[in-house]
Amino acid sequence: MVDFPNPPAMLVESREHLGTLWDAARVARVKPGTIRVWMSRRKIEPMDLGDGGPELFHLPTIEAAAQRRPGRPAAA
């Protein structure tokens, strides 16, 4: 289970909402390596477009993931 799941590919409004690893890093204001860490920690995942093309990310989902502050929740 991913913390910030992508919408189904058929619901993505346009290709403008998709971007490469570098685009995702730019939107989140982090380094590309941080995007890879988020993927390994199951915070985000690339879109599954089933076309065998390059790894693409849903940029609005990446932006939402970037808004969450790292660390433990206040109730912990």
Rank of each mutant, 00 (worst) to 15 (best):
A65Y: 12
G19C: 05
P8C: 00
H17D: 15
P8V: 00
K43G: 06
A24T: 04
A66G: 13
A74C: 07
M1S: 03
I35T: 03
M47R: 02
R72G: 05
R42Y: 02
V12K: 00
E63L: 06
E63K: 10
H17M: 09
I62P: 01
T34H: 08
T20H: 04
W22Q: 02
A24R: 05
A25C: 05
A66L: 09
V12Y: 00
P73T: 02
F4P: 01
L49Y: 10
M1H: 11
N6S: 04
A64W: 06
G71W: 01
P70L: 14
P73I: 13
A65G: 10
D48P: 01
H17G: 09
Q67A: 12
P5G: 07
M47W: 01
L59R: 02
D3P: 04
R36T: 15
M1C: 03
D3A: 05
A9W: 00
A25Y: 05
G50C: 07
F4C: 04
M39Y: 02
K31L: 08
M1E: 15
G71V: 13
E13V: 02
A74R: 13
V37T: 11
G53F: 09
A28Y: 11
E45I: 15
A9C: 03
S40D: 07
R41D: 02
K43S: 12
E13W: 01
A65K: 10
S40C: 06
F57E: 00
G71Q: 11
L11P: 00
A66W: 14
A9D: 01
A24S: 12
M47V: 11
Q67I: 03
A66P: 11
A25T: 06
L18R: 15
E16M: 07
T34A: 10
R42L: 15
V37R: 10
I44M: 12
E45A: 07
A25W: 04
P46A: 09
L49A: 05
L11S: 03
I62H: 03
W22R: 13
R72N: 12
P8I: 00
